[in-house]
Each structure stands twice: as structure tokens, then as C-alpha cells.
Simulated scan of single mutants.
Amino acid sequence: MGADGERQHERAMAPEDLSRFVLDRLNAGDVDGLVALYEPDAVLALPDGRVATGSAEIRRAYEQIVAARPAFSPGEQQPTLRTDELALTSTRLAGGATTVEVARRQPDGTWLWVLDHPSFSVG
């Protein structure tokens, strides 16, 4: 825990770290940690076709997703496509589904997602 009582989360030093962190945090039911992977105005595509825009909506979406405590399985991370401060990441999941995300390098050198179109695969 940090000095202010909040849990400290490992930060993504490479865009590929985000996929590992999201899986770990989904399986731990760590909503705060999940929201910390996104820029404040990020957009998350939801399984029902809606989108969550911004930290508050992303938080609500993840609260619903992890409420049933599902188990998420890792996939095969695809090569990252990078240009300057943007990166396109993707993971191929079991059953053929694929996630697609856009991450941006932050001023401190860490990476956060700006756009996230996941495919939820519960194992």
C-alpha cells in the first residue's frame, strides 16, 4: 500500500506489459488495478457492443465483469506495432478470438491503453 492507503500497482514499462497486467488483475478481481491501465479518457469496448469511455465508466464495466469471479486464460501475444509514442497490441485467445489495443507512452515513459477492444475468454 502507498502512503495514502492505496495499493501500488506495477506500471507498464513496455506496451506488452499491459496484456499481462490486465490478465493478472482480472483474475484477482482488482478493479482499481484494471482502471490504472487506462488513460483517463480511454475507450473500452464491451462484450454487448457498448463502449465505456473514461475512468468512471471503465470502472463500472470492470466491476460488473469481475463480480462473478470468472477465470480468464492467457492467450498468445502477437507482435507489437510501434511508432513513437503509440503502440498497437493484440492477443490471440483460445477459440480464435483476438483482442486489439492502442497504448500510448506517457510522459514518465510508462504505457497506458487509450483504446481497448477485448474479447473476453473465460476459462
Rank of each mutant, 00 (worst) to 15 (best):
S19V: 07
Q64R: 11
R50H: 05
P118I: 03
T91R: 06
D108F: 01
E101Y: 09
M13K: 14
D84R: 13
V43T: 14
L115R: 14
H9W: 11
L88V: 15
A3F: 08
G33F: 00
V43F: 08
G49I: 02
L37M: 08
R92Y: 07
Y62L: 02
G109T: 10
E16D: 14
R59Y: 10
A97M: 06
T83I: 15
W111S: 01
S19E: 14
A36M: 05
Q106M: 15
A28G: 05
V114E: 14
T91G: 03
A97K: 15
A3M: 12
L44V: 11
R105T: 09
P47C: 06
T98H: 07
S19L: 12
F72T: 04
G29P: 05
V122A: 08
V122F: 12
E10T: 15
D84S: 14
R7M: 08
Y62F: 09
N27S: 03
A68R: 09
A14I: 08
T98S: 11
A14F: 08
E10L: 13
V66S: 10
E16W: 07
V102L: 15
G96P: 04
S19I: 10
P79L: 01
G123I: 01
V31L: 00
P47I: 10
W113N: 12
H9S: 03
L23M: 11
G109Y: 07
P107D: 01
P118D: 04
E6Q: 13
Y62T: 03
A14D: 15
M1F: 05
A68K: 10
V100T: 14
A67Y: 01
G33P: 08
D30Q: 06
V43M: 13
G2R: 15
M1D: 12
L44R: 09
F72N: 01
H9I: 05
A12G: 00
P70W: 02
L46W: 07
I65N: 00
L44H: 06
L26F: 07
A67W: 00
A52I: 07
R92S: 09
A103Y: 06
P74M: 07
G54T: 02
L93T: 07
T89V: 13
V31Q: 04
G123M: 02
G49D: 02
L23G: 06
E63L: 00
A61S: 04
E16T: 11
A45T: 13
R20M: 15
D17W: 00
E76T: 13
E57A: 13
A56T: 11
D84P: 09
A103D: 05
G5F: 02
R11M: 12
D17Y: 08
A94I: 07
A87G: 03
A14Q: 14
L23F: 09
A71Y: 10
S73K: 11
D108A: 03
G2W: 04
D84T: 14
G29D: 03
Q77P: 08
R20L: 15
T110F: 03
P74C: 04
P107S: 04
L37K: 09
R11F: 01
R82I: 12
T80Q: 04
P107T: 06
P107V: 01
R11W: 06
A103L: 02
I58L: 02
P74L: 00
V31F: 08
T89F: 08
S121Q: 14
S90C: 04
M13C: 14
D4P: 01
V114G: 10
T80C: 11
G2F: 08
D108E: 02
D41C: 05
E57I: 01
V114F: 11
G54N: 11
V100M: 15
E63H: 02
A45L: 10
L26R: 06
R59K: 02
